[in-house]
């Protein structure tokens, strides 16, 4: 306790000595680990091609990033936050409560989430409904009842699927990829059952509990946030499947293959056109109050929204970002560089 007080007083002294020198001339970006590779690529190019300092990009996760972003206006708060989902109304409210009223929303492109396995096994083709049956904690029956998931083999769900044990490696609940997978794939498959669709109108909580809960009996293995690790585990275990972002599939196309979902393969064009069912939009949000206060934000936005960056043949596409359509990009670039306010 004595040391603690000593620490506190010493820290106070150190701060008092160091306080005045914090005028910031460097853009600060926080947020999603999914957008991190794209944001850092733009930041690096921006730092090299302009007079401004290279922005600092932190990987905090979408929710963590928005929390920091909404903490207020001022030098100590970030200028931009990345998100692998749209900002929630509650977060807009949190921002407003702390004085962050004017926010610019920038949608930058799409990210596909793939179900993949080793190239040593055959390619899987599965419907969202079957995928839900394989991974849900409780499965809905014909007559409106639910039973704990009885399936241990893929072919028990649908005889067309291989006679292999269900073993899926995926991200833990803290991950944005998991959130997106649950919302897009699990819920998409869950809704395919008629009575569950009706349940959404009558009892939203029960609906969510049924559709959003992944089984915990060992068939779904939480493999950590590191997608490289999942790819390596798939190579070692050809019977297992993994869930991760499209860019990792692209980089490891010699070792793993993406499964067809609802008959659509996770390919660049198919995700870009919106045919592939499990894809999400990626965003970043800009604090308007900081534009003009921190040097370079406008130029950074111009760089990010240039065709060289987010275009179909831009350098972000090389990094695995799936670009928006030309019309969307044109409109987006106008709205973003014109600093249009977010409208929910």
């Amino acid at each position: 306790m004595f040391t603690k007080t000593l620490c506190v007083s010493a820290i106070a002294l150190a701060t008092a000595a160091a306080a005045p020198a914090f005028a910031r001339d460097q853009i600060k970006i926080v947020g999603s680990s999914t957008v991190f590779p794209f944001s850092t690529t733009v930041a690096e190019r921006f730092g090299k091609s302009t007079e401004f300092k290279t922005p600092v990009v932190e990987s905090t996760g979408s929710g963590g990033g928005l929390k920091l972003f909404c903490a207020g206006v001022g030098e100590d708060t970030p200028d931009i936050t990345n998100a692998s989902r749209r900002i929630k109304a509650s977060e807009v409210q949190m921002c407003a409560d702390n004085g962050v009223t004017d926010i610019v929303e920038a949608k930058i492109g799409y990210d596909g989430i793939v179900l993949a396995n080793s190239k040593e096994s055959g390619q899987l083709s599965i419907s969202l409904g079957d995928l839900f049956m394989a991974l849900a904690k409780d499965v809905p029956g014909e007559a409106g009842e639910t039973t704990p998931n009885p399936y241990t083999m893929w072919n028990e769900i649908n005889p067309d699927l291989p006679a292999v044990k269900i073993e899926v490696l995926g991200p833990p609940p803290t991950s944005g990829t998991r959130d997106a997978f649950v919302e897009l794939a699990m819920e998409g498959g869950c809704k395919a059952v008629d009575w569950v669709k009706d349940l959404k109108k009558t009892d939203k909580n029960a609906y969510k509990a049924l559709c959003h809960t992944i089984r915990e009996d060992g068939a779904y293995v939480e493999a950590g946030e590191n997608d490289n690790l999942i790819v390596q585990k798939l190579q070692a275990n050809p019977a297992a499947f993994g869930i991760f972002g499209y860019s990792f599939l692209e980089q490891n196309s010699d070792a793993v293959q993406g499964s067809m979902i609802n008959g659509v393969a996770p390919e660049f064009e198919l995700i870009a056109e919106g045919d592939y069912p499990v894809s999400r939009s990626l965003y970043f949000y800009v604090k308007k109050a900081h534009v003009g206060e921190v040097a370079g934000i406008e130029q950074f936005l111009a760089e990010f929204t240039s065709e060289d960056a987010w275009g179909e043949e831009g350098y972000l596409a090389d990094k695995g970002l799936i670009p928006m359509t030309e019309a969307e990009r044109e409109q987006g670039a106008k709205a973003i560089t014109g600093l249009m306010n977010l409208s929910m």
């Binding site: 460097q26 991190f36 850092t40 690096e44 300092k53 290279t54 600092v56 932190e58």
Partner: peptide, 17 residues
Amino acid sequence: IGMVAFIVDVPQSILEP
């Protein structure tokens, strides 16, 4: 405390990211 970040520039002092 925000040190898990993408930093290109080599820090010149203990106050820089």
